[in-house]
């Protein structure tokens, strides 16, 4: 990638300018990394060291005791079985919700670009606006509805909620991707005798790799990181990871174990950070697609 400003023939002052630029960037990078560094080092320290020492210092004798405690023994509310149950709750919620919403989004995007009918724009507009509503505006009815459907306080209920409120974004992603897919290919397939689903499975889906990755990552990150739906529609043992982390950190009983809190936070951050590190390109693309609409 080349910068917008091309290098030109320049004198000595350019050297100093570059030193300043690099210095600034490195300083800023350090600041951005600091909270993560503190989080990690604190989780590896003992409580005594935390109380007596410096937040920025490296742990004198690193130990994963806090990690094992956070995973298996820490008290969330009145149960002291660690966060592992909640971690799995999140997994059980994220996987089906991501798969279902991505698949539906792909089909919707396909219909809205390749099988247009009068009114397709208003339908898409309505689905798009649904991405941006403050969820507070649907919280109360949704709580009642989940109760009526008998899936309140269950992982199924959360999957249901996340699929519904993720549909707008997944549809947006696929619509914009398929918009650029040549119509002539659809016509050719039609003349070759392929029908609606055949065109989708055989022609469109095999070429959708990049947008599937983007959508899956976007949905995974969003659903894993969700807190509002988790805290509103689950309780006790059915909560997802983020809610459990908040309960752990906010609990005021007993001694405040900062190292355990930080270890739990690392656990909560790990899946999305992992995705970010292995597929950062797609992560950014998803954010961009979600931010720049139309």
């Amino acid at each position: 990638m080349s910068g917008a400003v091309q290098e030109t023939v320049s004198g000595g002052s350019a050297k100093t300018a570059r030193v300043v630029i690099y210095g600034l960037l490195i300083l800023l990078a350090a600041i951005y990394l600091l909270p993560l560094y503190v989080m990690l080092t604190t989780s590896l320290k003992s409580l005594d060291e935390i109380r007596g020492g410096d937040m920025l210092s490296l742990p004198s004798s690193p130990s994963i005791a806090a990690w094992t405690k956070a995973w298996g023994e820490a008290c969330i509310g009145v149960t002291c079985t660690g966060i592992k149950g909640y971690f799995w709750n999140s997994i059980k919620m994220v996987v089906p919700a991501v798969i279902i919403s991505t698949l539906l989004g792909a089909l919707n995007g396909y219909v809205l670009t390749k099988w247009r009918f009068p009114g397709h724009k208003i339908i898409f507009g309505m689905m798009l606006f649904a991405c941006f509503i403050p969820f507070q505006a649907v919280l109360i009815p949704m709580a009642r509805m989940l109760g009526m459907m008998g899936i309140a306080n269950t992982t199924t209920g959360l999957v249901f909620v996340h699929v519904i409120y993720g549909l707008g974004f997944t549809t947006l992603f696929f619509r914009n991707y398929y918009e650029a897919f040549p119509d002539e290919l659809i016509k050719a397939a039609m003349m070759d005798g392929a029908g609606f689903f055949r065109i989708f499975w055989r022609i469109l889906l095999p070429t959708s790799g990049p947008i599937i990755v983007v959508t899956v990552i976007y949905q995974f990150t969003n659903i894993w990181n969700d807190f509002l739906f988790g805290v509103s529609f689950s309780s006790g043992g059915s909560s997802p990871m983020t809610v459990a982390l908040n309960n752990l950190v906010a609990s005021s009983t007993g001694v405040k174990e900062y190292n355990v809190d930080m270890a739990a936070a690392v656990f909560a951050a790990l899946p999305t950070l992992f995705v970010y590190i292995v597929a950062g390109r797609y992560f950014v693309r998803g954010l961009m697609a979600g931010a720049v609409k139309g």
Partner: peptide
């Protein structure tokens, strides 16, 4: 990429 809850913590 982090949850707001993690950031807050």
């Amino acid at each position: 990429a982090l949850s707001f809850v993690v950031t807050g913590t």
